[in-house]
Design a binder for these strands. Structure first.
Lengths: 68, 68
DNA sequence: GAAAAATGTCAAGTATATTTTACAAAAAAT
DNA sequence: ATTTTTTGTAAAATATACTTGACATTTTTC
């Protein structure tokens, strides 16, 4: 899978570390790291929580137009 | 959790049964039923596959504006 | 109104998302 | 340059998504 650079960018824009985002979302840092790395298939509730913490929507962070 | 009526409507608009959608998406009918029932936390890849099968985006089927 | 198709749901099993603990490497701060 | 913070990653354990098989109920069709 491809890295989630949109998520990484959104996090950087808020000046949050993976650990800080993890705490907001109440998962471990490793989970956040894995989601950004892309080698993962997170649950939608986690994706939604991440979106809300970063002020983005699902389409903005997890949708890839026209892919496959 | 709340029922996913947007998904149910999108499926109805294409005149697909849960079983037909399930086959397109390559999961079981029970899984589709559970996702629509809302008592579930599906993976994002499944959500994306469902969206593609129904011609919708994540925001259109799985995003709820302003909810908590 | 009976038959067929579609849906709700349940229990037991399998696959995998997430946690916990831990260590090394990279980046940032002083 | 050294210290501190941040990040990548890995193995083992736990939680839960998803499957399989099955039966009951509802909805559609004739």
């Amino acid at each position: 899978m491809a890295k989630n650079l949109k998520m990484k960018a959104a996090r950087a824009a808020l000046d949050l570390s993976q650990d800080e985002l993890a705490k907001k979302v109440k998962v471990t840092r490793q989970t956040i790291s894995a989601v950004e790395s892309g080698d993962y298939n997170p649950t939608i509730n986690l994706c939604i929580d991440i979106c809300r913490a970063l002020g983005k929507t699902l389409d903005e962070l997890f949708w890839e137009e026209g892919k496959k």
